[in-house]
Design a protein around this nucleic acid. Structure first.
Lengths: 161, 161
DNA sequence: CTCATTTTGTTTCCTTGTCAACAAAAATTA
DNA sequence: TAATTTTTGTTGACAAGGAAACAAAATGAG
């Protein structure tokens, strides 16, 4: 196995474990709310004028899926929607006080995850941080370019009918 | 945002893009086979005496889900099952020639993904590799310990009935 | 050995997300 | 301006995966 494959394998392993572990704790702490709902609450709490389309792009999900989640959050009274006077098409969301409460719990939990993993990160030197960040930045830019390429290829496909 | 959070954020971003991009190319190249099916084929092709339980553990999925996927692969004739004479409970899988074919296509695609991303990795020095690997190893071990802890806590919960 | 417990695989029901079709509004083009 | 195209959000049909209940086999305790 190449260095590249070895790194990516470890990378994947860490990621999967994190998702699994954090989701479990999250759903235990925020019983009654699914992790996808909490993700939406987090995004809505941190951005201005978020709508279905922005949420979908942020989470690599379809607008349909997000539409259903926000509908549930509206029903639960965790978010509310509003519109601008200039645009009667887009529908934005904001947190209600109850939603803000869930948001805070989520933030605290995130802090506790961070603290849980501190032992690992406190051994990382400034140079190591910089080095990893350089690598991840480069990889991110590379993948953005590849996704763009893919997007163009899909768009240019002639319509068969 | 702390160094830790910044790194993890970039980490997450790279990972999501990789999954999205590779899955798309994979499903285009292997039309008719879902990516989860191909993952199972890959695992079965690379391990000895794989069964439903091993696959579930490897992919952090339930045995029920894997059972359904292997059923589909059996129906498609991509894998076949066999049992040992000492154990009449466990059911193992192996690839058929057709499954082996899908396996090879998948491997080639993986190679092409690796080559696609080579530009990023060829800029990584040996020391950078070592440094990242140390970090990922430590993180992996830490998470394993935390998952263990979680498992014990779930097991030790007194049964209410 | 015998009985209880654990492991393994399957099935049913339910939830979640995708896909495709759609309607309304906005943006673009002629 | 008028007509076309794109964007936005929603819905219904469908597929994938999880939870739980189950049966059969293996393991363990006595």
């Amino acid at each position: 196995m190449s260095q590249q494959e070895k790194i990516m394998e470890e990378f994947r392993s860490v990621f999967n474990k994190l998702v699994w572990l954090n989701r479990g704790e999250m759903e235990e702490a925020l019983k009654g709310h699914k992790s996808s709902e909490v993700h939406c609450i987090e995004y809505i709490g941190k951005h201005v004028d978020p709508n279905v389309t922005r949420l979908a792009e942020a989470f690599y999900m379809t607008r349909g899926a997000i539409s259903k989640i926000t509908k549930k959050l509206l029903d639960k009274g965790l978010i509310e929607s509003y519109q601008s006077s200039e645009n009667k098409k887009e529908i934005y969301f904001r947190l209600t006080p109850e939603g803000r409460n869930v948001f805070e719990i989520h933030e605290n939990l995130h802090r506790s995850f961070r603290e849980r993993d501190d032992v690992v990160f406190e051994k990382v030197s400034a140079e190591q941080y910089a080095s990893m960040s350089r690598f991840l930045d480069a990889y991110n830019r590379h993948l953005d370019a590849e996704i763009d390429k893919q997007g163009i290829m899909l768009q240019d496909r002639p319509n068969p009918e």
